[in-house]
């Protein structure tokens, strides 16, 4: 049964959840398997080691569900043995969230100039250029990236690679 659907019918909200895990083999498979096995959504998921000793990794997962489903997701994550901490950034105060996108655009003439002009307005970097193409690098909140990709679709968009969100709570405290 679809875990995300069988629960109370309440408003569905998007949540950004940070998970600190032991950096051991299979830990990502455990987290992803939990989401697919229980029918939860993954809108994006990023993972990387974050300490110098490479002992722990930080997973940032953007998911959506009713209040009860979100509580379940956090509890289910928390009971995985290699999971140290689970924090719901969305409800625990202000946080910053960033995606990185690489956007390839091909074209010549008017369109090429327009693409470059818009890239500047979005503070995108040109990380590769040929006579008839650019690869732009852009970081920002997901909706800013969406808007940029949207605009590029009329100016010769070829392909896009995106990281998914990484996020931290604002202020001086660590998770």
């Amino acid at each position: 049964m679809d875990g995300a659907n069988m629960k109370e019918i309440g408003p569905i909200a998007r949540h950004t959840i940070s998970v600190i895990v032991d950096n051991e083999a299979g830990v990502l498979a455990r987290v992803i398997g939990l989401f697919s096995g229980r029918g939860y959504n993954i809108e994006s998921l990023t993972v990387s080691t974050v300490d110098t000793a490479h002992e722990t990794s930080r997973i940032t997962v953007v998911t959506s569900g009713t209040r009860m489903v979100i509580e379940q997701i956090k509890a289910q994550l928390d009971r995985l043995v290699p999971v140290h901490k689970v924090a719901d950034l969305t409800i625990e105060g202000d946080y910053v969230s960033r995606d990185l996108a690489l956007v390839k655009v091909a074209g010549v003439g008017e369109k090429r100039v327009e693409a470059l002009r818009l890239a500047e307005a979005f503070r995108a970097q040109v990380v590769d250029a040929s006579r008839d193409s650019f690869v732009f690098e852009l970081t920002g909140a997901a909706n800013k990236l969406d808007a940029f990709v949207d605009l590029m679709s009329e100016l010769g968009l070829v392909e896009v690679a995106r990281t998914g969100a990484v996020a931290l709570a604002r202020g001086s405290d660590a998770l």
Binding site: E8, E71, Q72, A75, Q76, D78, R79
Partner: peptide, 11 residues
């Protein structure tokens, strides 16, 4: 003992 058993099916 398992947080995930609480509020899973019944509030």
């Amino acid at each position: 003992i398992d947080l995930s058993s609480i509020n899973k099916n019944v509030a």
